[in-house]
């Protein structure tokens, strides 16, 4: 090639030295995603107002019930049951379980899916910023924002659920903070799951390249992950405690499983087989009154032992950090995979 070159422009020389500054992506991301972020703000804001009002009432009712003396009086029992009956549809936490995945799917999935669906990636990825840096900046910024919003909301939820969990002093049904409905709404659970949903959404958007299918896929994958975690994974974070004395199990512990043994060998789990009951503990003949002791104590007298494995409530924060930790690692991995795909993808 002959050495004929175009006249160099004044800023040509430093083309390789100075990339476009990272901070410029803040304004770009805000302009492109302000509607989604405003939606998240409105959703969380409206819920926060409601929770604030409801939570104030719950906390007042709780304070009144705790302060009431003597605890066994009819008036105090009334206060207890008032507290127990409050906000039933919220107090088990199941409705709010959809919150992380809603936020994550509706903010995470469109980030790349919309660009790919409308063809604007051909604009965005040919700008001077560079597509890998573009994807990295955008995903990290949005992830931090939605995680922070979820974290703030999680703090409010922790406060709201405190009375329902702190009622050991009262004679109410015990709710363990490790219960599947509540565990992931309190502490670091909510922001961690929101981040995971966002990361799943981003990767689904990159793989599927259509907004609506990507959102649906995010909902499905997230639901599977959440159920698998609550049903199978979480109980193994730390080795459960084991006891042969049911009275040792605190009322608010999370009972993993219970089974019976005889002479050191496994006998049965759950309800005893009928031949066993007929052999040792035949049910009292119908008509003959007397409060039945039930088969539990009866089998104990015949050499059977009941074992209980459980997670004590004191492990709440260990469990929170373990779950938060692996969700953070998973999210980082998914976002890294998404950026790698952006880098790799052929147009």
């Amino acid at each position: 090639m002959t050495a004929r070159t175009m006249p160099a422009r004044p800023d040509e020389a430093d083309a390789r030295l100075r990339p476009v500054p990272w901070r410029r992506m803040a304004g770009v991301t805000w302009r492109q995603h302000r509607i989604a972020l405003a939606g998240v703000a409105v959703l969380l804001g409206a819920l926060a107002v409601y929770l604030w009002i409801a939570g104030t009432q719950v906390n007042h009712a709780w304070a009144a019930a705790v302060a009431c003396h003597p605890a066994s009086s009819a008036a105090c029992q009334g206060l207890d049951s008032t507290l127990d009956g409050m906000d039933n549809f919220l107090s088990n936490g199941f409705i709010l379980q959809v919150l992380p995945v809603l936020i994550g799917a509706f903010t995470g999935a469109p980030v790349l899916a919309r660009e790919l669906e409308t063809g604007t990636f051909r604009y965005a990825w040919t700008q001077g910023f560079g597509r890998r840096r573009w994807a990295l900046a955008k995903l990290v910024l949005l992830a931090v924002v939605v995680t922070a919003a979820a974290g703030a909301f999680g703090a409010l939820l922790s406060w709201y659920y405190q009375p329902f969990l702190g009622n050991q002093a009262l004679g109410l049904p015990k709710t363990t903070p490790l219960t599947p409905g509540l565990f992931d709404l309190r502490g670091v659970g909510l922001p961690a799951w929101t981040l995971a949903a966002f990361a799943i959404g981003a990767l689904a958007g990159m793989l599927i390249r259509r907004v609506v299918p990507a959102i649906v896929a995010t909902l499905v994958v997230y639901t599977g992950l959440a159920f698998a975690t609550a049903g199978f994974l979480r109980q193994h974070y730390l080795t459960p405690l084991l006891t042969s004395n049911t009275l040792n199990v605190p009322g608010n512990a999370w009972v993993i499983s219970q089974w019976w043994t005889k002479d050191g060998r496994f006998a049965f789990t759950g309800f005893p087989p009928s031949n066993l009951l007929n052999q040792f503990c035949p049910p009292p003949p119908a008509g003959k009154g007397g409060p039945s002791e039930g088969w539990g104590p009866c089998l104990s007298q015949h050499g059977y032992t009941q074992w209980t494995s459980y997670q004590p409530t004191s492990r709440f924060w260990s469990f929170q950090w373990i779950e938060g930790g692996w969700l953070l690692a998973l999210s980082a991995l998914l976002i890294a995979a998404t950026i790698w795909l952006v880098h790799r993808r052929a147009a």
């Binding site: 800023d11 083309a15 100075r18 990339p19 476009v20 410029r24 992506m25 304004g27 770009v28 302009r31 492109q32 509607i35 409308t118 063809g119 604007t120 990636f121 051909r122 604009y123 965005a124 040919t126 700008q127 001077g128 910023f129 573009w134």
Partner: peptide, 24 residues
């Protein structure tokens, strides 16, 4: 690119802002 892809839901001023931000 073909069919001139733009962020259709954004005002023209925002498109200018984004392009300015993404380039030296």
């Amino acid at each position: 690119a073909q069919d001139t892809p733009l962020y259709k839901n954004l005002p023209v001023a925002d498109m200018i802002y984004i392009t300015r931000s993404l380039n030296r």
